[in-house]
Design a protein around this nucleic acid. Structure first.
Length: 103
DNA sequence: ATGGTGACTTGGC
DNA sequence: TGCCAAGCCACCA
Protein backbone atom coordinates (compact mmCIF):
# COMPACT_ATOMS: atom_id res chain seq x y z
CA UNK A 1 0.00 0.00 0.00
CA UNK A 2 1.23 3.48 -0.62
CA UNK A 3 1.61 6.33 1.84
CA UNK A 4 -0.90 9.07 2.27
CA UNK A 5 -0.11 12.30 0.43
CA UNK A 6 1.30 15.15 2.54
CA UNK A 7 -1.79 17.20 1.82
CA UNK A 8 -4.05 14.43 3.11
CA UNK A 9 -2.03 14.25 6.31
CA UNK A 10 -2.39 17.99 6.76
CA UNK A 11 -6.14 17.76 6.21
CA UNK A 12 -6.37 15.00 8.81
CA UNK A 13 -4.52 17.10 11.39
CA UNK A 14 -6.70 20.12 10.68
CA UNK A 15 -9.85 18.10 11.12
CA UNK A 16 -8.61 16.96 14.54
CA UNK A 17 -8.15 20.45 15.96
CA UNK A 18 -10.90 21.10 18.53
CA UNK A 19 -12.92 24.28 18.68
CA UNK A 20 -11.68 27.05 20.97
CA UNK A 21 -7.95 26.51 20.43
CA UNK A 22 -5.30 27.37 17.85
CA UNK A 23 -2.16 25.73 16.47
CA UNK A 24 0.83 27.13 14.56
CA UNK A 25 1.75 26.21 11.00
CA UNK A 26 4.86 24.48 12.25
CA UNK A 27 2.82 22.52 14.77
CA UNK A 28 0.47 21.28 12.07
CA UNK A 29 3.44 20.25 9.96
CA UNK A 30 4.97 18.31 12.83
CA UNK A 31 1.74 16.59 13.79
CA UNK A 32 1.39 15.61 10.14
CA UNK A 33 4.83 14.02 10.22
CA UNK A 34 6.30 16.76 8.04
CA UNK A 35 8.88 18.57 10.22
CA UNK A 36 10.04 21.98 8.96
CA UNK A 37 7.27 22.09 6.38
CA UNK A 38 5.43 25.04 7.90
CA UNK A 39 5.45 26.85 4.56
CA UNK A 40 3.90 23.84 2.89
CA UNK A 41 1.05 24.02 5.39
CA UNK A 42 0.52 27.68 4.61
CA UNK A 43 0.53 27.01 0.92
CA UNK A 44 -1.92 24.15 1.35
CA UNK A 45 -4.35 26.36 3.25
CA UNK A 46 -4.03 29.02 0.56
CA UNK A 47 -5.26 26.42 -1.92
CA UNK A 48 -8.23 25.25 0.11
CA UNK A 49 -11.56 25.64 -1.69
CA UNK A 50 -13.79 28.41 -0.34
CA UNK A 51 -16.44 25.85 0.57
CA UNK A 52 -14.07 23.72 2.66
CA UNK A 53 -15.41 22.60 6.02
CA UNK A 54 -11.93 22.30 7.51
CA UNK A 55 -11.14 24.61 10.47
CA UNK A 56 -8.30 26.45 8.69
CA UNK A 57 -9.02 29.53 10.83
CA UNK A 58 -7.49 27.78 13.87
CA UNK A 59 -4.02 27.99 12.32
CA UNK A 60 -1.85 31.03 13.13
CA UNK A 61 1.90 31.70 13.00
CA UNK A 62 4.54 31.15 15.70
CA UNK A 63 4.31 34.82 16.71
CA UNK A 64 0.69 34.24 17.69
CA UNK A 65 -0.63 36.38 14.88
CA UNK A 66 -2.99 35.95 11.94
CA UNK A 67 -0.81 35.37 8.86
CA UNK A 68 -3.23 37.15 6.56
CA UNK A 69 -3.88 40.83 5.85
CA UNK A 70 -6.30 41.81 8.61
CA UNK A 71 -8.28 43.87 6.14
CA UNK A 72 -8.72 41.04 3.64
CA UNK A 73 -11.95 39.04 3.44
CA UNK A 74 -10.19 35.89 4.61
CA UNK A 75 -8.44 37.71 7.41
CA UNK A 76 -11.65 39.21 8.72
CA UNK A 77 -13.40 35.86 8.38
CA UNK A 78 -10.67 34.14 10.40
CA UNK A 79 -10.88 36.71 13.18
CA UNK A 80 -14.66 36.49 13.30
CA UNK A 81 -14.64 32.70 13.53
CA UNK A 82 -12.06 32.66 16.30
CA UNK A 83 -14.06 35.17 18.29
CA UNK A 84 -17.17 33.08 17.76
CA UNK A 85 -15.28 30.21 19.36
CA UNK A 86 -14.57 32.35 22.39
CA UNK A 87 -10.99 33.48 21.74
CA UNK A 88 -9.72 36.98 22.44
CA UNK A 89 -8.24 38.51 19.30
CA UNK A 90 -6.50 41.88 19.58
CA UNK A 91 -4.75 43.51 16.65
CA UNK A 92 -4.75 40.17 14.84
CA UNK A 93 -2.92 38.62 17.79
CA UNK A 94 -3.99 35.64 19.89
CA UNK A 95 -2.37 34.50 23.16
CA UNK A 96 -0.61 31.24 22.34
CA UNK A 97 0.05 30.56 26.02
CA UNK A 98 -3.69 30.53 26.63
CA UNK A 99 -5.13 29.02 23.49
CA UNK A 100 -2.43 26.85 21.96
CA UNK A 101 -3.62 23.27 21.53
CA UNK A 102 -1.53 20.42 22.99
CA UNK A 103 -2.14 17.09 21.34
C1' DA B 1 18.13 26.17 -15.07
C1' DT B 2 17.98 30.32 -11.99
C1' DG B 3 16.26 33.68 -8.97
C1' DG B 4 12.22 35.67 -6.54
C1' DT B 5 8.37 34.91 -3.40
C1' DG B 6 5.47 33.53 0.45
C1' DA B 7 -1.27 32.05 4.98
C1' DC B 8 6.67 30.06 8.12
C1' DT B 9 10.27 29.41 12.14
C1' DT B 10 14.09 30.17 15.05
C1' DG B 11 17.82 32.66 17.09
C1' DG B 12 20.17 37.04 18.30
C1' DC B 13 19.80 41.90 20.03
C1' DT C 1 7.66 42.76 22.99
C1' DG C 2 9.61 43.85 18.53
C1' DC C 3 12.70 44.07 14.47
C1' DC C 4 16.36 41.49 11.56
C1' DA C 5 18.84 37.93 9.37
C1' DA C 6 19.04 33.08 7.95
C1' DG C 7 17.21 28.76 7.08
C1' DC C 8 13.67 26.23 4.78
C1' DC C 9 10.60 24.27 1.05
C1' DA C 10 7.54 24.33 -2.97
C1' DC C 11 5.95 27.08 -6.73
C1' DC C 12 6.35 30.26 -10.56
C1' DA C 13 8.12 33.60 -14.21
Amino acid sequence: MRDIDPEQRIYAVLAAIPSGVVVTYGQVAELAGLPRAARLVGRTLRHLPADSTLPWHRVINAAGKISLPLDSDSGKRQIARLQEEGLVVKGGRISLSKYRWRA
